[in-house]
Design a protein around this nucleic acid. Structure first.
Lengths: 339, 339
DNA sequence: GACGGAAACTAATGCGCTTTAGCGTAGGGA
DNA sequence: TCCCTACGCTAAAGCGCATTAGTTTCCGTC
């Protein structure tokens, strides 16, 4: 590996052209103070020498760091096949990069670790703002970010204390869509295999499910899991061994749904003939499976784009639109059928 | 949102303690030149005021930027459900963060865009090194990185021109594992639904497959796809409509495999009774499906860890071990059965 | 009691850039 | 003719830190 080439500095440019550093700086930044001819010469030379401003130097002299952070606290084992986060990241990143922002990514395994990362990033002035997600009950992050004064957007709010702006999907509406569909197609005993209830969005979904399905609830109506496929299997088995078997099961994401379908099959039940299945999260696997799974659609990439856009507005002190709720859509597929 | 708190600087610390900036700097960086007592006072005050070194200032004064980049050029549509990259990212990130490095992530949609990103990062001195992946035939990146003098590690090599160090999985060995297993279980007409052949690892797999399966090849033996599930469906249909139907099909990843199983089923064929199926990539879905899929196992997170570790060695001019080939393992599951 | 030397600091410089203030020169209006 | 302004540019300061070269004080030593 050759030694990293000595990068030309502004001083080099200026010296080669016999002008001052400031003139070069003006020229390169499109500010007044230099003649058009000088500007051209500077730009040409800069291109020739492959000059680019030193990021740290720029940041130090007051320009922002042009970086946004994204911390994700997640049990690594849970990352089985969920594609949600990568797609979210993809979307956020695409908006950021077109605006010249970089995305600093870090995963942590616990909330206090995440707090430490946020704090370090803030103190080091390494990021202009951050994206956080997966708010839990009593989550310390919104207040902490507020205290740090670090711009932040919550992917998947809302924040109950309204400390942070957020981009959210209307979880209750999504759940109503599902339940309405199931009832309209003749289902009368609905069950829901949810994620961990201390996740706020799960909590909202459970509440919405209970409310919407009132009168048509199976017993048990809701079973919590850790989003892992083993618990998905177990929960489903439990449901079908209940005295009165549900005629439709809603799963919180596609991982659980896949596990559920498997459990149903190995119990000799057919989907959708015996039991209908719905996933609250869509992904390629829902259409690839047989039967394909009825699922709530929301494009995680679009979601990520909205989050990033909102964060940039926040960073630039532009007015931030209040609630950015993506309206969910239900893709009805083969796994639900008229009773 | 309260205004971002004014961050204390070294000067502030020094002033409050009545000492010079340099003394404070010495104390904070654990170098000699200050008494233990002064050091304590500085450290205490720093903690009290939540002082942290300004990242840009540090970088500017010669300390490295403590950042590593990861660019991914990928057709966004292909990100259906592949979890590989998120897991790779997870692994790399975990190693980096324990060493205090940040991970700058960017996705691009074409190779020349990626080159531009790499160049900008290098010129701006924004990253110390980068991770790249998915080398294609005639890929310009290794030479370009060499020219930039930017440390880089290839995730999933080897680089045919040996310009870049890499961490690799022995693709040929993986393919031999598969083929040996299939032959040992009595399969005699093997077919392979691969990814795009201009990806080098796909190319290697195809060659290895052709060689290992010589004498037991179906006709057609290999069909290329774009990794999308539609082409997976089409390729599989084509295979089973061939005059002599294969008795086992190898799919390049789980996305293709899932699509393939679906195609087989809808053609009235049973897996594994009529046709065995193997996936070259494992993920939760392979075990969740029914039948569960026999697949080559390699932990993308471990892979990512190895890549990051290697990059750090490279950055620090430590000797870089030559070939870091992860030995693949074949998880035999329900989708392959004795003929 | 003078001297070498370590210890504990301070002063000053530089990293590469942005920005403000300042300084000639040319042109235009009175 | 003189003044005022606009222009094109230079000089200098500053961002926050690391680091090197000095400076002072104190100690042990012969």
């Amino acid at each position: 590996m050759p030694p990293r080439r000595h990068r030309p500095t502004l001083k080099d440019l200026a010296a080669r052209l016999g002008i001052s550093e400031s003139a070069a700086s003006f020229a390169l930044n499109g500010r007044p103070g230099v003649s058009e001819e000088t500007r051209r010469r500077v730009l040409d030379l800069a291109k020739e020498l492959q000059w680019a401003p030193h990021h740290a130097a720029r940041t130090l002299s007051g320009i922002t760091s042009m970086t946004v952070g994204f911390v994700l606290t997640r049990d690594v084992r849970e990352f089985g096949m969920e594609s949600f986060y990568l797609r979210l990241l993809t979307g956020a990143q695409s908006v950021l990069s077109t605006r010249g922002y970089g995305l600093l990514f870090q995963m942590t395994s616990a909330v206090d670790e995440e707090l430490a990362v946020l704090r370090r990033w803030s103190e080091e002035r390494r990021v202009e703002g951050v994206i956080i997600s997966d708010l839990r009950r009593g989550d310390p992050r919104p207040a902490y970010l507020k205290e740090l004064g670090l711009p932040a957007v919550l992917a998947g709010g809302p924040d109950p204390k309204k400390l942070l702006p957020c981009v959210t999907v209307d979880d209750a509406a999504a759940m109503r869509l599902i339940v309405d569909h199931l009832r309209a197609t003749g289902h009368r005993r609905l069950a829901y295999v949810s994620g961990p209830a201390d996740l706020l969005h799960v909590h909202r979904r459970i509440a919405a499910f209970r409310k919407a399905a009132a009168g048509s609830l199976a017993e048990p109506g809701v079973i919590g899991t850790d989003y892992g496929d083993e618990q998905g299997l177990a929960a489903t088995r439990w449901l079908i061994e209940a005295p009165v078997r549900p005629d439709a099961v809603v799963f919180d994401n596609e991982v659980l749904a896949v596990a559920g379908v498997r459990a149903l099959r190995s119990a000799g039940l057919s989907v959708p003939a015996d039991i209908s299945v719905v996933s609250c999260e869509d992904s390629a696997i829902c259409t690839a499976l047989q039967p394909s799974l009825t699922a709530v659609q929301r494009d995680p990439a679009v979601f990520g784009e909205a989050v990033a856009a909102k964060l940039l507005r926040l960073i630039h002190d532009e007015p931030v639109p209040d609630a950015d709720a993506q309206q969910p859509n239900l893709a009805v597929r083969e796994s639900t059928q008229q009773r």
